[in-house]
Simulated scan of single mutants.
Amino acid sequence: MTTSSRTVVEKVLRAGREVDIDTFVALMAPDGYIEWPYRPPGVPARLRGRAEIRRHLTETAGTFVTFDEYRNVVLHETADPEVVIVEYEAYGNLVVTGQPFEQTVIAVIRVRNGQILSYRDYLNPLPLVEALASVRARPTGRVG
């Protein structure tokens, strides 16, 4: 029995929140991709393939923001059984300052045969831009 698209999306959201890179990557199709159409500077537009996705997540996951929970998660199953639209609010903290961080996300995810072909992450870039600015403006504590 094939895993439903909804179940795969629920698993990938949990893996993302828990920074479970192995599970996240295993849910991706070998040539699947993640893209961020709206992103702050420094975030790649698209990652394609498990190796590239793994490398990026290994280098960046949990280094700037950690997420404790996703709230108000709504999964919309569509007329196309491969496509699920998910919306949620992510709550966590900036790693450097410990300050609270909130992010609103809408993602369009296409799943086929239990694997994610495409994950288009329409996050609100403004909280990230503001967080980056606040971290850059933070005194380094260095003397001289």
Rank of each mutant, 00 (worst) to 15 (best):
S5P: 07
T7R: 09
E10N: 08
K11N: 08
V12C: 09
L13Q: 10
R14N: 12
G16Y: 03
D20V: 14
V25E: 01
L27W: 01
M28E: 01
P30L: 07
P30H: 07
W36A: 06
W36Y: 15
P37L: 11
Y38R: 11
A45P: 10
G49W: 02
G49L: 04
R50K: 10
R50T: 02
E52H: 00
E52G: 00
I53D: 00
E59H: 05
T60Q: 14
G62P: 14
G62W: 07
F67N: 03
F67H: 08
E69Y: 13
Y70P: 10
R71P: 01
R71N: 09
T78R: 04
T78A: 04
A79T: 13
D80H: 05
Y88W: 12
G92M: 05
N93A: 13
L94K: 08
V95H: 04
T97H: 07
F101P: 00
V108M: 11
R110K: 14
G114F: 03
G114W: 01
Q115V: 15
S118W: 03
Y119N: 05
D121T: 04
N124E: 14
P125H: 01
P125R: 01
L128N: 03
L128D: 03
V129I: 15
R136L: 15
A137F: 02
P139T: 12
P139D: 13
T140H: 08
T140V: 11
G144C: 04
